[in-house]
């Protein structure tokens, strides 16, 4: 079990490295999909079918959207500048990350034995308090419904943003102030102005 998880993890790391390094945008998107589907299998094996379903479905949706988006827009290969400053700074930050990760991992509890102070109560009383036999849904929509409202708000905001930025054409209201600012004069205005001369 642990060995299989390790193999999947290595597979995911290889997939993400390929996704960054490859020049072709389409194969990069497919490598991102590899990472997501391996993650979904891992969730399934660790006993979280709810998250596995969500991860798999969202991954499919994201793949479709990304492929559609990368095909319709210009494929531009980003040119790489081997800059000494960027290499040195990324090395420094990677070293810092390693130090802090080393310190933080020592503080973590061992794999598979999480600290469950609040969630013990949820697990014990979810079925009788909420009436839902799926504990995850019981927590999401009863104990933690506020968080779900936050998630719904995030989705709503993203839709509003996508529609505002990508809508077919801007709304044009002709106002008098606009014509004055730009200096566009109607024929009647020009005649009126020239009457004075």
């Amino acid at each position: 079990m642990d060995l299989f998880l390790l193999i999947l993890l290595v597979f995911m790391i290889i997939g993400s490295v390929i996704a960054i390094e490859t020049k072709n945008l389409l194969s990069s998107v497919i490598s991102v999909g590899v990472v997501g589907f391996s993650l979904s299998i891992m969730f399934l094996m660790l006993g979280a079918p709810d998250i596995a379903i969500t991860q798999m479905v969202v991954e499919i949706l994201i793949l479709v959207i990304l492929i559609r988006a990368t095909i319709t827009t210009d494929n531009t290969a980003i040119e790489r500048h081997a800059d000494t400053f960027s290499v040195i700074s990324s090395l420094i930050f990677f070293g810092l990350f390693l130090i802090f990760a080393f310190l933080a991992v020592h503080e973590l509890r061992p794999f598979g034995e999480p600290l469950m102070r609040v969630s013990k109560t949820y697990l014990a009383t979810s079925a009788e308090k909420t009436g839902a036999t799926n504990v995850v849904t019981g927590i999401l929509l009863d104990f933690r419904a506020y968080d779900t409202i936050g998630e719904a708000t995030v989705l709503f905001t993203s839709v509003v943003g996508a529609f505002v930025i990508l809508r077919r054409r801007g709304r044009k209201h002709k106002r008098e102030s606009d014509t004055e600012k730009v200096g566009i004069l109607e024929d009647a205005d020009i005649k009126k102005d020239f009457k004075g001369f």
Binding site: T72, L141, I165, R167
Partner: peptide, 28 residues
Amino acid sequence: SGGIIPLCNIAIALKVTASLFAIFIALA
């Protein structure tokens, strides 16, 4: 069973369906 939980599920499903489809329309 479950009181408001199925109703909340249906409301969220409506919202997620429409908004993800809308994002797809907007992007594609």
